[in-house]
Design a protein around this nucleic acid. Structure first.
Length: 541
RNA sequence: GCCCUCGUAGCUUAAUCGGAUAAAGCAAUUCCCUUCUAAGGAAAAGAGUGCAGGUUCGAGUCCUGCCGAGGGCACCA
């Protein structure tokens, strides 16, 4: 019998009441809060039932507890095929390199996607490249005016850093005249002016080469890349259709607008109704224009049941507008679009600002972390290991970003390096390495007698391991991958305690097998969890 | 002015969708490497959860009002 079946049987007797799995070994293997009456539980797998402090603690016969949980973890499960979910994350601009904020975005987006996948959903991970618009023209204009003879090679820079250099260069010199020139450039670009488009293509190519390197090194991935430049025309078309249908209207200056209802959006500071612009008077498109195009094309391409936008908390208003307008246009699936908000990453001096060059760059950060990881390796072994040091560095970095609740702002101090000890990614990696080393030493037999397992840490560990499916489910339900990261840490911690107290290979033969099975179950859950979080798994540290 | 998010040990964060004595890491104090790798473990210390009320058998979690921090509110994305 599997543990999930045991829980079901008990739940049938208890009705709607919540069944919990206490992590304090003194309490039951299962427990629930009792309001009044004591339910009768007559199952042969129950060892004893203890009412304490208004709680009912249910103790399962130990050998059955271990057997039912471990066998359920070890078996191959078939997943039913569930609905289609698209997840959009990363969404870089092609005017600057990727920074820590992008990394947080991508890392939580990928983790959520994997969690959905783990539950059987069909996931489509989408990266939308913001490759057009006024901000892109800024770096183009600066390069055209002041840097024409330079190339990434001539300045010995990665392509994305090179373009970012000109973006900062522009921002430091911005004047009203330059602003106008930027807008003229955008207009020319939208009209397909050959020279402008050629410049745009040249610079984007550099950026993409740079991004590619960052993606590879930081292990960022997606299933599909969309480019806004391919979609903004569809956006314009949708806006014009909306205008024809009378959903939108032309403002006095010729721009296309939409009125936001007071009940949902409130009023402006001066008490006037809120409206939002969908297309500029000169027919150039704004953020919302292309977002409409992207939403519609995404539905067309994937026919999703759910569409999730992993976008900063600061854009809640914008996304609320977007979903509302989609609904107003008659797209009923607008109700199936969700914003997964996360907090910004701050530096000691405040918000990261690309235009001022005040950012923590992913490339620099990864390199620095890798160096530190190599130093840690050197403390233990006289070797240089590029692969291992990178994997440890990524574990430290990603776990650090993932273990914090998405909505929480992150205050990152570049001077304080991310740790490799304590509650960290490498700690989790290390725990798994220990488990794998034990498993390498001895073969697991088929028939296992679990009755020799009775240590407190063994019991707590097996109870914790049984929670994995719930944790994944909850993190999906609440858009919160940090639950998984914290869970992985908690089971690592219990495992390390077990490791110190309960020698596996030096025990009695029967105990060896039972403990080996527990270690095996731990390793399975750890591998799954780390994979969901995209944290590299190591065989050796 | 209005809206959104967050306020938990010195610092950084947890807390099983309202439940048992609020839990960890870092820093500071001890102890443990002839034992499956010490990126580890053990011990002790440290907050009653911004403030004031309310709902509930029960509140860090929900509601109201303040205080504080951050973000947002039409041609930036």
């Amino acid at each position: 019998m599997y543990f999930s079946q045991i829980k079901e049987l008990i739940k049938e007797v208890l009705g709607e009441r919540e069944l919990r799995i206490p992590l304090n070994e003194k309490f039951g293997d299962l427990s629930l809060y009792l309001s009044k009456e004591l339910p009768e539980l007559n199952f042969d797998f129950i060892e004893k039932v203890e009412p304490v402090n208004n709680y009912l603690n249910i103790f399962i016969k130990k050998d059955i507890l271990f057997e039912s949980i471990i066998s359920e973890i070890i078996k191959d499960e078939k997943r039913e095929k569930k609905e289609k979910v698209t997840l959009e994350y990363l969404s870089p601009n092609t005017n600057k390199p990727l920074h820590l904020g992008h990394l947080r975005n991508a890392v939580i987006g990928m983790a959520l996607a994997n969690a959905f996948k783990e539950l059987g959903y069909q996931t489509f991970r989408i990266n939308i490249v913001n490759d057009r618009g006024e901000h892109i023209c800024r770096s183009m204009l600066a390069y055209q005016k002041w840097g024409k003879k330079e190339t990434p090679e001539s300045m010995q820079m990665k392509g994305d850093h090179f373009v970012g250099y000109w973006y900062v260069y522009y921002s430091q010199r911005e004047t009203p005249e330059l602003k106008k020139e930027v807008h003229t450039m955008l207009k020319k670009w939208e009209e397909g002016d050959k020279e402008t488009v050629a410049l745009w293509q040249k610079m984007n190519k550099w950026v993409y080469q740079g991004f590619k390197e960052t993606y590879q090194k930081a292990e960022l991935s997606f299933d599909k890349v969309y480019y806004e430049s391919d979609l903004y025309r569809l956006g314009k078309k949708i806006v014009k259709e909306g205008l024809d249908k009378g959903i939108f209207y032309r403002g006095e200056e010729g721009d296309i607008l939409f009125d936001l209802p007071e009940e949902e959006f409130g009023l402006n500071k001066d008490g006037s109704d809120k409206k939002i612009i969908l297309l500029r008077k000169d027919d150039t498109s704004v953020y919302l224009t292309q977002d409409l195009g992207m939403a519609v094309s995404r539905k067309r391409d994937y026919d999703f049941d759910r569409s999730i936008y992993v976008v900063g908390l600061e854009q809640s208003y914008h996304l609320k507008c977007l979903f509302f307008i989609l609904k107003a246009l008659g797209y009923s699936w607008a109700d199936r679009c969700f914003h997964f908000p996360y907090g910004l990453v701050y530096l000691p001096e405040g918000k990261m600002k690309s235009r001022e060059g005040k950012v923590v760059d992913i490339d620099d950060l990864t390199d620095k972390m890798q160096e530190l990881a190599q130093k840690e390796i050197s403390k233990r072994e006289r070797v240089k290991d590029q692969d291992r040091s990178l994997k440890i560095a990524l574990a430290a970095l990603k776990f650090n970003l993932l273990s914090i609740q998405p909505k929480q702002e992150i205050h990152f101090d570049p001077k304080k390096s991310i740790a490799f000890e304590g509650k960290t990614g490498p700690y989790c990696q290390y725990s798994l390495v220990r488990a794998l080393n034990i498993l390498k030493e001895k073969e697991l037999t088929k028939e296992i007698n679990f009755s020799s397992l009775k240590q407190g840490k063994e019991i707590v560990l097996v109870r914790q391991l049984s929670l994995y499916p719930e944790i994944i489910q909850k993190s999906v339900d609440t858009f919160n991958p940090s639950l998984i990261a914290n869970y992985i840490y908690e089971i690592s911690k219990t495992f390390n305690q077990f490791y110190n107290l309960c020698p596996v290979l030096k025990a009695e033969e029967e105990t060896i097998q039972a403990r080996l099975a527990l270690v095996k179950a731990f390793s399975i859950i750890m591998k799954k969890g780390l994979t969901v979080l995209n944290i590299p798994i190591l065989e050796k540290m």
